Computed example of a mutant assay.
Amino acid sequence: MSGDVAVLGAGMHPWGKWGRSFVEYGTAAARAALADAGVGWRDVDAVVGADTVRGGYPGYVAGATFARALGWQGARVSSVYAACASGAQAIATARAQILAGLADVVLVVGADAAPKGFFAPAGGDRPDDPDWLRFRLLGATNPAYFALYARRRMAVYGDTPEDFALVKVKNAAAGALNPHARYRTPVTPDEVAASPVVADPLRLLDICATSDGGAALVLSSMAYARVHGVGEPVRVRAVSTVTPTYPRAVLDLPDIATDSAAGAAPAPPFREAIATAAYEEAGIGPGDLSLAEVYDLSTALELEWYEDLGLCGRGEAAKLLREGATALGGRVPVNASGGLASFGEAVPAQAIAQVCELTWQLRGTAGPRQVPGARAGITANQGLFGHGSAVVAVR
């Protein structure tokens, strides 16, 4: 049986700092997606909400929260939390229901009203969580964590702060063309270099903000799409939600021999494993991609994704960037939406927003940021406690 499901509709609430409830953002995105799909709310069989831990009890039961806001009509509901991967896991849940024959049409919604500044660790003490341990034992907030990756790239591959700045310049140029983006002003390398240092070598413009925003998708079975006259819909072909493999669980570090790992084959870095699983399920490879949407929590981390997605070899990401291959008009644009550099992070919405961008690009309706002839794209992100995801969409 084919693993494809159709993307009938995509919708977003613009990112920003609006000071309103996440429910408002998600409901607006859901209505936009339904209108885009030409599907009535009463025709939706199930709602999957990506949870937000900052939204109180309604945030923990996001599926039911959005169903209530749209008007109870008897749809099944599910609620999913997976940190930064929440949106993609919500897509995976919807896809599973469709492929199992439990639903023909599923609405997927994620939205957040984020605090200003760093995200504080949530959920109490978690001594088994490597991310909690680096918060508590190292005092490493997310920007400090990103800076460690940046320093490693500088030491191992010779990347420079000027390379990192070019990522921001590229993404800001794309974001300036996106009406849903929060930041829509191009920036120069000098402006990145002049912004305040947050965690050396990363500056303020190297790191994404926290934002409010919402995104939604209407997914259906391929049979439903055909019956309703959608001739060649965008299709979700793969969703990877793999976990790390011991002993290389979090950082891409050299293997350390232990009794339990003795004789074992080295595990791939986690982000590479996320992408590999998606490619294998979709039956495509990096060379088949028209574009990619990745979690650019920092400029240096975007470069890591180039290598993890197989767009280039290890240590070659900065060269790929400098050549213009990942910019609009390049061989494989990365973050044609503008990425987190232009949106900021609305945690449960962003992975859904990434698929919205793939949908518009594969339809050929992305306007001035359109990737010509786009036929296949991948999204990728990594969340706390071993959550990660990649989604492959094709047309």
Rank of each mutant, 00 (worst) to 15 (best):
D4S: 13
G9W: 01
G19K: 00
F22Y: 01
A28W: 00
L34D: 00
L34C: 05
V48L: 09
G55R: 01
Y57G: 00
P58Y: 01
V61E: 05
A67W: 02
A67Q: 07
R68Y: 00
R68Q: 08
G74I: 04
V77R: 08
A83D: 03
A85W: 02
G87K: 03
A88H: 02
I91M: 07
A92W: 02
R95G: 04
R95Q: 07
A96C: 10
A100C: 13
G101P: 10
V105Y: 01
L107Q: 02
G110D: 00
A113F: 00
A114F: 00
F118W: 11
A120N: 09
A120S: 11
R126I: 03
R126H: 07
P127C: 06
L133Y: 08
R134N: 09
R136S: 14
G139L: 12
A140N: 12
A140E: 14
F146I: 10
L148A: 13
A150E: 09
M154F: 05
P161Q: 09
P161H: 07
D163M: 06
A165R: 02
L166M: 14
A173D: 10
G175Y: 02
A176L: 08
L177P: 08
P179Y: 01
P179W: 02
P179T: 04
T185I: 14
P186L: 13
P186E: 15
P189Y: 13
A194I: 15
S195T: 13
V197H: 09
D200Q: 13
D200M: 12
L205A: 10
D206G: 06
I207R: 01
A209Y: 10
T210F: 00
S211D: 01
A216E: 00
V218K: 01
S220F: 06
S220P: 05
S221M: 03
A223V: 11
Y224D: 11
Y224A: 10
R226C: 09
H228F: 07
V234S: 05
V236I: 15
V236E: 05
T241G: 05
L251T: 14
D252C: 08
D259M: 14
S260F: 15
S260H: 15
S260A: 15
P266Q: 12
P268Q: 14
P268R: 08
P269D: 11
F270D: 14
A273W: 13
A275R: 04
A282Y: 04
P286F: 06
P286N: 11
D288E: 11
L297K: 07
T299E: 04
A300H: 05
E302K: 02
E302W: 02
E302P: 02
E304T: 14
W305C: 02
Y306N: 07
L311Q: 08
G313E: 10
R314V: 14
K319F: 13
L321C: 11
E323H: 13
E323Q: 15
P333G: 06
V334L: 11
V334T: 09
A336P: 12
G339T: 08
L340H: 02
S342E: 07
Q350T: 03
E357C: 03
T359P: 01
G364V: 06
P368K: 10
Q370C: 03
V371L: 06
P372H: 13
I378S: 03
Q382E: 11
F385D: 12
S389V: 05
V391L: 01
V392Y: 03
A393M: 05
